[in-house]
């Protein structure tokens, strides 16, 4: 698939850039990306990836729009309340860019969904925008096993976290090395503690740029953890280490 006249206009600001250009835009066009969770993080991720021309975006979320979502989930409108998030999101994203394919998966994420858009094909990247540890761990495990790049973010209150893994290139250090598989949920999450909308915008934007870097071949920070504190305007970047007792990437076959 190559770029048509409309694409040359639409993506002209990418094409002007030496390190994206036609070659880079084709990489975005050919990519198939799964976004798991269409909440506060998933909305900006989906918007930016659709606008950037990622060729296929699959949206996974079983939830319906609720009035309490509207303070931060920027794809939805008041009249969407009660509708499936993925259906509303697909409409909005298609209005933004009708040249890309968008599929909806209105159910809880599972291995089948994560395993790819078809039986013979894996996703180019998976974006973890979920709100619970069980889903995050399942996504991590599947991405690790199937060597799919994983871009994971989270937010609560004024704070955000981003960590990404290029499992195509690295076989040590995964999400479970950092957050133990068996650990329990902390007391607070977005539904019981609250969250500031733009924090999700910051982290979701960072997630979408990390997806683009992954697709374009610019990503080098496997397992680097970034934290943002919006209340104090502070960032902290840390390197993580692989855990030799990790149940996902630990030495079973080495």
């Amino acid at each position: 698939m190559s770029l048509n006249d409309d694409d040359f206009m639409r993506y002209s600001r990418h094409l002007l850039m030496d390190d994206i250009g036609e070659v880079g835009q084709e990489k975005l066009t050919q990519a198939k990306v799964l976004i798991v969770g269409l909440g506060g993080l998933g909305c900006p991720v989906a918007l930016y990836l659709a606008a950037a021309g990622v060729g296929q975006i699959d949206l996974c979320d079983p939830d319906r729009v609720d009035k309490t979502n509207l303070q931060r989930q920027v794809l939805y409108r008041t009249e969407d309340c009660g509708e499936l998030k993925v259906a509303c999101a697909k409409d909005r994203l298609h209005a933004l860019n009708s040249g890309i394919t968008i599929n909806v998966l209105a159910r809880e994420v599972d291995v089948d969904i994560l395993s790819g858009p078809s039986l013979t094909e894996a996703y180019t990247a998976i974006v973890d925008c979920t709100d619970n540890l069980a889903a995050r761990q399942l996504i991590n495990k599947t991405c690790y096993e199937q060597r799919i790049p994983l871009i994971s973010a989270a937010a609560v209150g004024w704070e955000g976290q981003l960590v990404a893994f290029d499992f195509r290139r690295y076989r040590q250090l995964c999400f479970s090395c950092i957050i133990d598989y068996k650990s329990t949920e902390p007391m607070m999450n977005c539904s019981n503690f609250g969250v500031v909308g733009p924090v999700l915008g910051v982290m979701g934007s960072l997630q979408s740029i990390t997806v683009m870097r992954m697709l374009l071949g610019f990503f080098e920070q496997h397992g680097e953890l970034q934290r943002y504190d919006g209340k104090r305007g502070q960032w902290l970047t840390m390197q993580c280490a692989s855990d030799t007792s990790c149940s996902i990437c630990g030495p079973t076959d080495r």
Binding site: G39, L41, A154, V156, R227, M238
Partner: peptide, 10 residues
């Protein structure tokens, strides 16, 4: 030595 609170929502 830095301590970081859990962040899990989305």
């Amino acid at each position: 030595l830095a301590f970081l609170p859990p962040v899990t929502g989305g």
